[in-house]
Design a protein around this nucleic acid. Sequence first.
DNA 1: GTATTTATTGAGAACGTTCCCAAAAAGCTG
DNA 2: CAGCTTTTTGGGAACGTTCTCAATAAATAC
Lengths: 330, 330
Amino acid sequence: MVTIKELAAKSGFSKSTVSRVINNDHNVNEQTRKKVLAVIEEMDYKPNIIARSMITGSLPIILIIVGDIQNHYFARTVVGIEKELTEKNYMAVVYNSMYDVDKEKKFIRMAKECQFCGIIPMTAVKSDELEECLDEVNCPIVLINRDLRKKPLDAVFGNDFEASYIATTELIKNGHTCIAYISGPSKISSVSVDRENGYRAALKDHDIRVDESLIYEGKLDMKSGYEIGKKIFKNTKITAVSSNNFLMALGVHRCGKALGKPVLTEFDIACGETVPELYEESGFIYAGSDLEAIGAKAAQFLMKRINKSKEPRQKIIFSATKIYNPKQIK
Amino acid sequence: MVTIKELAAKSGFSKSTVSRVINNDHNVNEQTRKKVLAVIEEMDYKPNIIARSMITGSLPIILIIVGDIQNHYFARTVVGIEKELTEKNYMAVVYNSMYDVDKEKKFIRMAKECQFCGIIPMTAVKSDELEECLDEVNCPIVLINRDLRKKPLDAVFGNDFEASYIATTELIKNGHTCIAYISGPSKISSVSVDRENGYRAALKDHDIRVDESLIYEGKLDMKSGYEIGKKIFKNTKITAVSSNNFLMALGVHRCGKALGKPVLTEFDIACGETVPELYEESGFIYAGSDLEAIGAKAAQFLMKRINKSKEPRQKIIFSATKIYNPKQIK
DNA sequence: GTATTTATTGAGAACGTTCCCAAAAAGCTG
DNA sequence: CAGCTTTTTGGGAACGTTCTCAATAAATAC
């Protein structure tokens, strides 16, 4: 590999001058700059990233921690982050914690040891331990759909209240009045609380009484949706379900099919987040924020901090713009 | 951060000796080793990866190129690779080429510039350009489900013939005799050829004549499956489809539902690869190799090469062990 | 007891950059 | 043209490792 030293020898200038040209420092004569640039071109010089990182003390790599990359929610957001990073010549290492707090802590420590230049922890659960762990880290951090109690950090959010409100409203538009709700575990994340409130508000705004017995608390996974489905289908008054998330909605769908119910035809199922690409036109009703856009924004925030921006802490909320209801098309 | 220099000062030995202890070089007195290790423990020393990479000339990071990380085929394999790497303190950067050869070339060059220590190119298409590009790279490369014409490299394969053979046989077990097939573009990859041969062999072995008019060539995506579905459902003799891949199978399913056909109940759909986790018990018949295992094996191969193994080039084929047919359970 | 080997340690270069500071060259002021 | 500032350049340290080679200490051989 060609080094600065060789460029210096070939061009007749010193290492320092060549370095200045490379980092386009303005303290260099226009003539010299041209000559050096010509040599760079000629020798096909590429800077040694490791050597550069040796000086700066960090690699142009950021760590993204996700619960499970096979979950579309994380996958899409990561795609958004990476598109943004690649453009700016940064890279990302993605780690799956499989929703294990200890693993997440391990990854965060690793990011420090590996001298990554930033972290986007899309960590699974709220935890004081995790907050402490993030406190020890000295590189920039940007949060997605999460706030920390103590540390004020840049954060990007989807509008979960709105998403659930819209999804539920679509059910009402389709003529449903007896709509069950499957909530998430409210203690863990504010997302679940917001979505449930969206459901409640949608009913109220359409003069439908909220029946607490129609609200079931699930565990966010498909199995949980399946089990709750069994209860829901016993109550023949219910003609539709609004679910906190897609996986539980899918569970209800599976359950309904197993029981021979007219799911996705007469019996509608909605959820307050976008669905995986493969399910996009499969009949589920959904509303959610643009995950790729959220990821991209988070990456932008992070890069600003990496470049030592002193702007006050920012927080952005993305509206729920991805809406789908097959019965209301055309 | 604690450095070797500080360890040296504190322990009373030289940088060199401390370095030897860290890399457990045997040329060091047992007493000294213990003392130094105690200091390392006490000061919570962590080696500086960048400085180390400066010497070795490469980062402990490998590049994985995939067509699209949102495709379960890639996602699962990547999970397998990463599990293996993380254990050995290596990291992975994953890039989505979105099936664009130019992007893939760009990524390969980048891996070289960034001095990554290995590449697993799960590249989309066969291409001479790409082969040339890989030729220029000097770090170890391991292939998955692909062979290069010129360069003999370690490679890991799924058994595609077998997978398609099994999937088709399951359809026959379910009582079907008039089974259409959706092939992939045969010019691009040997995978498509193998799977088609699996279909043909399954029919022959069960004394069913292969009717060439029942074989449709698709483009691997859902839309393509949907379009072919239209043709298939016109022919009322056909009672089942065996598809090259899952996405086209899903397309047929969508088409069938739109046309009001009894898909996944009377009309069976099978494919010669595993399906995304969310579709695992949705009614599709499938057979395929364990993608995580394939990924893990590829990572092992790669790490052997990184550690300068001089073993002859290896090639492993994973049998199609993941089989699902809802009608043949119990 | 001297010579030779072996085990253990240390000094210092090297990796390819960036950064600080000083030197040289050029331009300006009076 | 002396004295000043500004522009442009170069020398060399620094980053934290590993690696080579030499030096010392200990052990063995004769």
